[in-house]
Design a protein around this nucleic acid. Sequence first.
DNA 1: CGTTTATTTTACCAACCGGTCAAAGCAAGG
DNA 2: CCTTGCTTTGACCGGTTGGTAAAATAAACG
Lengths: 207, 207
Amino acid sequence: MSAFPADPKPLTRIQTKNRAAILDAGLEVFSTFGFRGSTLDQIARAAGLSKPNLLYYFPSKEAIHAELLTGLLSTWLDPLTLMRADGDPVPELLGYVRRKLEMSRQFPRESRLFANEILQGAPRVKAALEGELKDLVDAKAEVIRGWAAAGKIADVHPHHLIFSIWSLTQHYADFDVQIRAVLGEEDPFEGAEAYLDALFTKMLTPA
Amino acid sequence: MSAFPADPKPLTRIQTKNRAAILDAGLEVFSTFGFRGSTLDQIARAAGLSKPNLLYYFPSKEAIHAELLTGLLSTWLDPLTLMRADGDPVPELLGYVRRKLEMSRQFPRESRLFANEILQGAPRVKAALEGELKDLVDAKAEVIRGWAAAGKIADVHPHHLIFSIWSLTQHYADFDVQIRAVLGEEDPFEGAEAYLDALFTKMLTPA
DNA sequence: CGTTTATTTTACCAACCGGTCAAAGCAAGG
DNA sequence: CCTTGCTTTGACCGGTTGGTAAAATAAACG
């Protein structure tokens, strides 16, 4: 007897390993080719499994993609959530920028998975965008508006400030190939951190 | 007898119309689903033709995509090309930002087509990125470096300045769905122009 | 008008797609 | 060692994919 209906059976050692391998392979493939452009064979090969074996662990292509996306969403909002209204405004915002850039550096595939989903019209996350995301952004925009009203930061459009942070940081993950083609050897993220730091410091420091 | 081997036959009225319809439909579909995620049936339907009829005008799916991409590349570089070394530095750069934002507003599908290609690793334009694009960017970066050295603009990393202009302007086309989900009614491009103008003015005006 | 050329359609193909199934192989506990 | 349940595989299915061949139709033109 358990408190909940349907005891969640513990995963076996093999299940844990193979599910992880599949999700990693799915991330690799989906983030490159998008949902429609990816095939189960591609994912199975990348995971080192046969296609039927892959479908033993996940019921469908959709299910793999869905698990990746839902797992991603909260992680993606973390850096913004961590921005505190009671902190020092400029450092709080710069910290947000740095955390977001760090995510692009460490999780470029996740960034591209998200970019692909949005480019395709966000069919599977539109609801979350208009719900959770909008709520969080609206709340944090209100905080920023307060800081501006109190003269602690320059007077900026809060929503567009947030968009610009998303844009600039994610660009280094999503357009990585292009940036490296132009820069050559140089590591993009080195220069990016200094550049974004200077940009937002200038932008936000009140006159 | 002609001066060239293989006279380029003039296109008939119907050819002109149908090729245009196919390219427009291809742009619509490819920009949404990427190359691998798009099907000839989708494109044919969007163009109001049957699939074999579509293949009467273009030899393959690849050919449609290739024509769209090559046609796009020069257009895409125009705004940067128009930035003149002998102009007034800050207005020249702000003009570049405005032209680029205007392209995002007027040609969002082209922007997404390009974004899709880059996300997929730029398999079909990598050479152009490392050639034409890099050459143009390097040249304009040198101009910007000169302006900074002469104290006419603030001291910024020229390449990252250009990346940030790409990023911020294209974001409004590529992530349109997300931005509208957060903003609600408000037209993104209205606020964007004022925001980007203020941002780059602050960033670039020398101390 | 008739004929020559451009266009469109119908029927079709082999390869690939997501997914199923039953049988085979395997690990672990008694 | 042998049973029981977990894991893997190979063969297969109906539908879709990019692309072709040839016949049917429409336009252009003398």
